[in-house]
Design a protein around this nucleic acid. Structure first.
Length: 579
RNA sequence: GCGCUCGUAGCUCAGUUGGAUAGAGCAGCGGACUUCUAAUCCGCAGGUCGCAGGUUCGAAUCCUGCCGAGCGUGCCA
């Protein structure tokens, strides 16, 4: 809030000096070193440079047009043209007090809420969910939570793989070698098994492949029996999806799979033809991108030579539906890096097809998860790791730690904490690295009690809650608590000021995350916040302090807990009251 | 061949329009518990940011070339 107020004034002043300045360049951010001040902007330097002006002179001129005396004790030009803001302690006290009164949590709501569709997770029917789905699911869910928090209308859609050639083989397997007992016990495992068997048999027995094709055609022609089997497979798979999503705390507004768009594909193809964005080539219908240097060599097929549509067609139909039916201002796809080319293609085709549409299309891609040997993450026997088993292990490992560190808890508490810590550790480890890098999966690192990990952060939160339990006043730290709510929190020590200053940066961090779709900024912010809190915790007694200081510190703790909790919840983590 | 991404401390990783002295954690060394939970904290040590040029007041970040890795590249998704 504080920073946004200063930013607004800065932009006004800069526009008075340079009327055509781009306000988006004039962000303020924390100084890299406190000796320079509290906040700074570097944006005036490129602004001056482009106009051939002296950056220091421009900065001086902006200062002359700038009145932030309400918030700052000093604003100065430094080096080649940095503008450094030294914030008044009273201004920080005020913004933290506002938060303590429940007026805001350092983050303004979007002025123009947008409708944002987020497409993520997208597992396949009849296959187990595995580690390959985890990043999309966790990252997508986090982005959905973030944009909702920022005040946008978010629509999450799970575009499950419920159609395609694999169903021919699956139906053959279902009809000829289904083990109903196994299906009862482990439906997805059984579907996976029959698929594998048929798939390997197809390689040596052409007759099986032939019958798979036959079953696929029957399915496509609405044969009642095959449709029934197909529906049953989807239903069984959905149960598995739901149980995994429930454990992860992930929910979807829609689960419109590929099959949902079947009836629209022919129409899409016809429209693409009349819009002149595709043409016949080698028997297929193909979109070419002659004018695009990158896509020039990579045409996209929208109808195969056998007449069938493919995933490009389905994705175009999906885009069209989301724009038409939901009025999406923005559509975000969260998938792995290997699909970059595909999304470039469909975005390009869609732009050419629906020229009037202004929907922003974003591909938020991520790298892969590697094992500790640096190779793709697999089990010891080389199988893909099932997501459900991964979650089991996370909870088990967390339980061992809880058992060791806090044996006095009840079984119920231990179980709850293990779940929060275990699942939280998986999620946090996934969100912490820059999404575009591959990262090494490591149980020891994600469950470490030190460093930038879920247990460390959850512990910081639990410690604050512990203070409140011992304070004898349950509402002592609650935001908006009436007791002392009107009085301004006074910050007496450098640790308190540093903590409060960090709290005030919450909103600008969220803004940066939303801008780049990078939750790791938020992870780092929360880790730093926990660090500032710990320094405060070491140096500044709360419960033993004099009544007035005690009350102020309790309220500062309350705001800290709230920001920690809110930040962690945006990441998709739950927080424990104790650990 | 072409394209995308990457190469930062012994290891795993950060590094927000180019911005001030490149940061964490682990591992190593040395300290701090009759505590508001030590599941913690403090200190020390550790880097020619793959290599070579270029642009700039300023480059880990932008451009060019080279070396190395992963992925993708017309009928899978």
């Amino acid at each position: 809030m504080l920073n946004f107020k200063i930013e607004t004034r800065l932009i006004e002043a800069a526009l008075r000096v340079l009327s055509d300045a781009d306000p988006s360049l004039l962000k303020i951010r924390p100084c890299p070193n406190p000796k320079f001040g509290d906040f700074q902007t570097t944006g005036l330097m490129p602004l001056a440079k482009r106009r051939g002006l002296n950056p220091r002179e421009v900065a001086e001129e902006v200062i002359r047009n700038l009145d932030v005396s309400q918030y700052c004790s000093r604003v100065e030009v430094a080096g080649p043209g940095f503008l450094n803001f030294h914030v008044k302690k009273e201004a920080i006290e005020e913004v933290v007090s506002e938060a303590a009164r429940g007026e805001h949590i350092f983050s303004p709501k979007a002025e123009e809420p947008k409708t944002i569709v987020i497409d993520f997770s997208s597992p396949n029917v009849a296959k187990p969910m595995h580690v390959g789905h985890i990043r999309s699911t966790i990252l997508g869910d986090c982005l959905a939570r973030l944009f909702r928090f920022l005040g946008h209308k978010v629509i999450t859609d799970n575009h499950i793989g419920d159609w395609g050639t694999q169903f021919g083989k699956l139906i053959v397997g279902w009809k000829t070698r289904l083990d109903t007992q196994r299906l009862e016990n482990d439906p997805v495992g059984e579907m996976e098994r029959i698929y594998r068997e048929i798939n390997s048999e197809c390689e040596r027995a052409p007759s099986i492949l032939e019958s798979a094709r036959g079953e696929l055609v029957k399915l496509q022609n609405n044969d009642p029996e095959n449709i029934g089997i197909w529906r049953r497979m989807i239903e069984l798979s959905r149960h598995q999806f739901e149980s995994t999503y429930h454990r992860l705390g992930v929910e979807f507004d829609h689960m419109l799979g590929e099959s949902f768009y079947n009836s629209r594909l022919n129409n899409v193809i016809a429209e693409l033809q009349s819009a002149d964005v595709v043409r016949e080539s080698r028997g297929a219908l193909v979109a070419f991108f002659d004018e695009d240097p990158i896509l020039k060599e990579h045409p996209a097929i929208v109808r195969k030579s056998d007449g069938a549509a493919n995933y490009t067609t389905t994705d175009l139909a999906t885009l069209d539906y989301r724009v038409r039916e939901w009025g999406a201002d923005k559509i975000v796809y969260v998938t792995d890096s290997r699909q970059q080319l595909h999304f470039r293609q469909i975005f390009k085709i869609f732009e050419a097809w629906r020229r009037e549409v202004e929907t922003e299309m974003v591909h938020v891609w991520f790298g892969s998860i590697l094992g500790e040997d640096g190779k793709p993450f697999k089990t010891r026997s080389g199988e893909v790791v099932r997501l459900s088993e991964l979650l089991d292990e996370a909870e088990e490992r967390a339980q061992c730690v809880v058992e060791e560190k806090n044996p006095g808890l009840t079984d119920n508490e231990k179980e709850r904490i293990s779940r929060i810590v275990g699942i939280g550790a998986i999620k946090y480890a996934d969100l912490l690295p820059n999404r575009q890098s591959d990262y090494q999966f490591s149980w020891d690192k994600m469950l470490a009690l030190n460093g930038n990990t879920a247990p460390y952060l959850l512990y910081a939160y639990a410690r604050i809650r512990s203070i409140f339990r011992k304070s004898g006043d349950a509402s002592a730290g609650e935001l908006g608590a009436r007791d002392g709510g009107a009085a301004r929190i006074t910050l007496a020590t450098p640790e308190e000021v540093a903590l409060a200053r960090q709290l005030s940066c919450f909103g600008m961090t969220l803004e940066a995350v939303a801008e780049d779709y990078r939750p790791n900024y938020l992870c780092n912010y929360i880790y730093e916040l926990a660090g500032f809190f710990t320094q405060f915790y070491e140096k500044c007694p709360v419960l033993k302090a004099e009544p007035e200081i005690r009350r102020a510190r309790l309220r500062l703790c309350g705001v800290t807990a709230e920001v920690l909790k809110t930040g962690l919840e945006i990441l998709g983590l739950e927080v424990p009251e104790q650990m």
